[in-house]
Simulated assay, not measured.
Amino acid sequence: MVKLLAMVLVICTPFTTFAFQEGETLTESASNELKLDPNRLTIVDFFAEWCVSCRHELPVVNQLYGELSGTGVTFVGVDVDEDIEVGLEFQKSLGLNFPVVNDPKQQLIALFKPVGMPALYYVYQGQVVKVRFGAITDIRSVILDDLAQMGVKL
C-alpha cells in the first residue's frame, strides 16, 4: 500500500516541482560546473542545436552579453547537445561570445530539469531568482524588463 501511494504521488506531482524554481539554491556541483561568480547576476541559458527557438534567441542573447558587460550581469550557456561536435559547430555558426558549458552527458540539464527549451535561469549568489521556459518572442525586451524588475541598474 505504501509503495502504491508513493507511485501515485510521483505520477500526480507536476514535473515543474522537480526543476530548480525561483527561490531555490543551486547545488554546489551546479554552481561549480557553471563557474558562477556569486557577486554577479548570471543568466543561465539552456539550448541545443535542434531547438528552433534557440536559433532565433541566441544571437540576441549574444548581443546582450556584449552590451551588459561591466554591469554586474553576465550570461553562461549550457549546450545540451549529446554530440559535442554538433554543439560546437552550432555555437560557432552563431558566433557566440559568451561562455558556454557543453553538457553532452546531460549532467547539468539533469540537475536543472527545465520543463521547456530554451530555458533561462537568473541566478544570484547561488539562488535562482527567476526562471523562464520556452520560446520568447522578444527576448531582448523580456530580459531587460526582467532585469529592471529585479532592480538591476543598466
Rank of each mutant, 00 (worst) to 15 (best):
M1P: 09
M1K: 07
M1N: 06
V2D: 13
L4T: 13
A6D: 11
A6R: 13
V8L: 15
V8C: 13
L9F: 09
I11G: 04
C12I: 09
F15N: 11
F15E: 14
T16F: 15
T17V: 15
F20H: 08
F20C: 03
Q21E: 09
Q21C: 10
Q21V: 06
Q21L: 11
E22N: 13
G23P: 05
E28V: 11
E28S: 11
S29C: 06
S29A: 11
S29G: 07
S29Y: 07
A30E: 00
S31P: 02
S31D: 05
N32Y: 12
L34E: 00
L36P: 01
L36G: 03
L36K: 05
D37V: 00
P38E: 03
N39L: 05
R40S: 13
T42I: 10
I43E: 00
D45G: 04
D45L: 04
D45P: 02
F46I: 02
W50T: 06
C51K: 03
V52L: 14
V52I: 14
S53A: 15
S53R: 11
C54E: 02
C54K: 01
R55H: 13
E57N: 13
V61Q: 02
V61K: 05
N62I: 04
N62P: 02
Y65T: 05
G66L: 08
E67F: 03
L68R: 04
L68E: 07
S69G: 11
S69H: 14
S69T: 14
G70S: 07
T71A: 09
V73Y: 01
T74H: 05
G77S: 01
V78R: 01
D79E: 04
V80A: 03
V80G: 00
D81Q: 02
D81P: 02
D81F: 01
I84D: 02
I84R: 05
E85L: 12
V86W: 02
V86T: 12
V86Q: 06
L88V: 13
E89N: 08
E89D: 11
F90P: 00
Q91E: 13
K92V: 08
K92L: 09
S93K: 08
L96P: 01
F98A: 09
P99D: 03
P99G: 02
V101T: 15
D103P: 08
P104R: 06
K105P: 10
Q106Y: 10
Q107F: 12
Q107W: 10
L108K: 06
I109V: 15
I109F: 07
I109L: 10
L111W: 13
K113R: 15
K113P: 14
P114Q: 09
V115S: 06
V115L: 09
V115F: 03
P118F: 07
A119M: 07
A119C: 08
L120D: 06
V129R: 07
K130M: 06
K130S: 06
F133P: 04
F133I: 08
G134H: 02
A135I: 04
A135S: 11
T137D: 11
I139F: 03
I139E: 01
V142D: 09
I143E: 00
L144V: 06
D145I: 03
L147F: 01
A148S: 13
Q149V: 03
L154D: 03
L154H: 08
